[in-house]
Design a protein around this nucleic acid. Structure first.
Lengths: 253, 253
DNA sequence: AGGCGCTTGTGAAGTCGTGCACAAATCGCG
DNA sequence: CGCGATTTGTGCACGACTTCACAAGCGCCT
């Protein structure tokens, strides 16, 4: 995360919910609850218990209740939560009451897929513009939008009041793109490039690295197979047997 | 997220624990260190200090040292870490000394991009087979592999000893695919479908939901704009007390 | 009306992760 | 050979998150 404001005791009068300074872990789970709630609503459920909802979202019910309690008390004891009300509450908290415009930079392999990803549109986002540095790609029509050159970024971002940018370029150009986004007024960045971005304070960056996820799984595979293969424990250290594995297939991206 | 062994009171009967049972948070950072190390190696660095490496990986140097200390002592005081040695160590720990085969199910929008994603190959994985349920897609050639029907999954998975599966199908079919993967002997699943999978114990699932990341960013956007719009508290409540932003590294979790 | 079963909301305890601060270890050099 | 500069490895305190366990609240049934 980029920054977190430890706010003071939040006390607001009136019916409008305050901005309750949620734990980051809670924020990360709210979208999951929201998805589960939409499913439930579609299935015709009016209310839902914490146990049910927790099951649908894949978490512990106590955790779910505590998470929701941070938003305020929107459940009824003995009954459960009103599905529609809770959806509204979470959407408000996540700032999804307005459809946010997103700028996507880099329409290569991954960018192409992201541009066409229906999940963005269905969950409150609108891909407002596509950019690429490659002039050969400029003009290409993807999913109803045509690709613009990255030099137009500032103009478009301002015109469409875009606050979120997605970087789907190679790592080498990611920092430049991030700088350009920041200069254009973007204050939240989702980075798919495998590199660390440095941005000014006040700008949030989240990173998604697809290969990292596989590597984490690989670790668990490795551990599982070691456990079954060597129940006793393998001696010494894992020091020796590494070197002669693969022909070092460069890292270049 | 992944499943943990319930294990209870640590079922290990005496003896030295073979694999040091790393904290999950550490495991999640190792791939990042590995990437940074490969960059350094390519740049010709022989050794690196924790401070440098931490910078390149976007973390605190104390955290990095603690993480690495869990793997054993592979640094030299006063000097730093041997880049090549550390790469070997981390790759061993992550189980990347063998190139792991991956089965990708669902070659729609996103699956297509994943099939062509160079980052997998360059970081120790080999997409060994592509599957789809749609007969119209079977046979299609993507990145040198042709798409097979999902009914072949079991045969191929066994033949190629595939332990990792990637689900890039719509949510509606994800659970069926997961069941098929598990039946075919896959014990680790990376799920891009926006739904909760239920799998037997011993199977690890990691979920990546692209829209969720945007929603988390949206939350922070929402909060930022509210803060600037309402600098003070409204009536009644204790106002002020908004401490300044704490600078921190920009690292996604 | 009153009691009963169900479910939320939350104090409190426990677990996990982080970051500081420093001792121990190593190198280079005079 | 010893000293100082440097950097690792880690004990410790702190903070964040999770989980348990239960009181408080709500609706329904008698």
């Amino acid at each position: 995360m980029s920054q977190h404001r430890p706010g003071g005791p939040n006390g607001r009068a009136g019916g409008v919910p305050a901005l309750p300074d949620l734990p980051e872990a809670t924020v990360a789970r709210l979208p999951e609850y929201l998805r589960a709630l939409h499913n439930l609503a579609e299935a015709g459920n009016d209310t839902v218990s914490s146990e049910e909802l927790a099951g649908a979202a894949g978490v512990n019910s106590a955790k779910l209740r505590k998470d929701l309690s941070h938003l305020g008390s929107y459940g009824t004891r003995g009954v459960g939560y009103d599905v529609a009300l809770l959806i509204d509450q979470i959407e408000f908290t996540l700032g999804l009451t307005q459809r946010r415009g997103v700028a996507l930079v880099g329409v290569g392999n991954l960018g192409h897929a992201l541009a066409g990803y229906a999940g963005f549109a269905s969950r409150g986002f609108r891909i407002a513009a596509l950019f690429d540095a490659d002039p050969a790609r400029v003009g290409e029509l993807i999913n109803g939008l045509h690709v613009r050159h990255i030099s137009d970024l500032a103009d478009v971002a301002v015109a469409e009041s875009i606050a979120i940018g997605v970087i789907a370029t190679p790592a080498a150009s990611a920092q430049d793109v991030a700088d350009a986004l920041v200069a254009a007024g973007v204050t939240s960045i989702l980075n798919f490039a495998p590199c660390v971005l440095s941005v000014p304070d006040g700008v949030d960056v989240r990173k998604v690295d697809l290969a990292v996820e596989l590597q984490i799984l690989s670790f668990h595979e490795h551990r599982k197979s070691s456990l079954t293969a060597l129940p006793g424990g393998l001696g010494g250290g894992p020091a020796g047997l590494v070197s002669a594995a693969e022909p070092e297939e460069a890292v270049g991206t």
